[in-house]
């Protein structure tokens, strides 16, 4: 059984039909990427999975259990953590306070300190800056913080929304390396990206989203060599 499966969801913003019947599934231990242009519905899909938006139709299932009866904050307790678009760090709190906030859903002190240690090992930079206010971190450091904060909840599934946004290429590479590392340590990752070549570089499988519908789905290798994808998202002629 898939760890996460989405069946035919339709999500609306008021009267705007944003997701028009999306189905996808993620197996345990995979990195799956959702690629697509602006307004394709990538972020909407993530927000629907995490419960911030409720679909009008269709279901989101975690290990076969329908999530529609849970509120957004309860879904965190189910083991799904999100790194929001634009990072969304608590700008006035320090790095440590941000990370502690990430562990809000976990009450086990031992687990929390192990997680903190893990985050500091993944991102030594955050350890150096742990007393600094998050708002004064650079973009890359904020991305690290947002990722670390999501990991503090010991998630089974990590939802990442555009981690490469606004970052220098060298930092993008660092973040993607870390995503692979996190995945190796046992966390399933759903990665939403505009930077398709980077995303397909680390993912097992990918879905291509266009105006609220999935137009292609295949292994990452196959998508990379697909002429349509190459033309539209990889900038190749």
């Amino acid at each position: 059984m898939s760890i996460l499966s989405i069946e035919n969801i339709h999500t609306y913003y008021g009267n705007i039909h944003a997701l028009k019947g999306i189905s996808l599934h993620i197996e345990k231990g995979e990195i799956v990427t959702l690629i697509g242009g602006n307004g394709a519905g990538k972020t909407t899909t993530l927000r629907t999975i995490s419960g911030l938006l409720k679909p009008r139709e269709g279901t989101v299932k975690l290990n076969g259990e329908d999530l529609s009866k849970y509120k957004a904050h309860e879904i965190v307790y189910k083991g799904i953590s999100m790194v929001p678009e634009g990072r969304g760090v608590f700008a006035r709190l320090t790095v440590t306070e941000n990370l502690e906030m990430g562990a809000y859903s976990r009450n086990d002190k031992g687990e929390n300190s192990r997680n903190l240690e893990r985050v500091f090992t993944l991102f030594p930079r955050l350890k150096e800056r742990r007393t600094q206010v998050a708002g004064t971190l650079s973009g890359g450091e904020q991305q690290m913080l947002a990722t670390g904060r999501a990991l503090m909840a010991s998630p089974n599934i990590l939802l990442m929304d555009e981690p490469s946004m606004g970052l220098a290429p060298v930092l993008v590479e660092l973040i993607f390396d870390t995503i692979q590392q996190i995945n190796k340590e046992g966390t399933t990752v759903l990665l939403v990206e505009q930077n398709a070549s980077m995303a397909l570089g680390i993912a097992n499988r990918g879905y291509v989203l266009q105006t609220g519908q999935i137009v292609l789905s295949d292994s990452a290798e196959a998508l990379k060599s697909n002429p349509t994808v190459q033309k539209a998202y990889l900038g190749m002629e």
Binding site: S50, L52, K71, A72, H73, E74, V76, Y77, S81, M82, P84, G88, F90, A91, R92, L93, M101, G102, Y104, S105, R149, A153
Partner: peptide, 12 residues
């Protein structure tokens, strides 16, 4: 600080 992110941290 931020209502949406708070919710994503598991806060009711």
């Amino acid at each position: 600080e931020d209502e949406d992110v708070a919710q994503a941290m598991g806060i009711n």
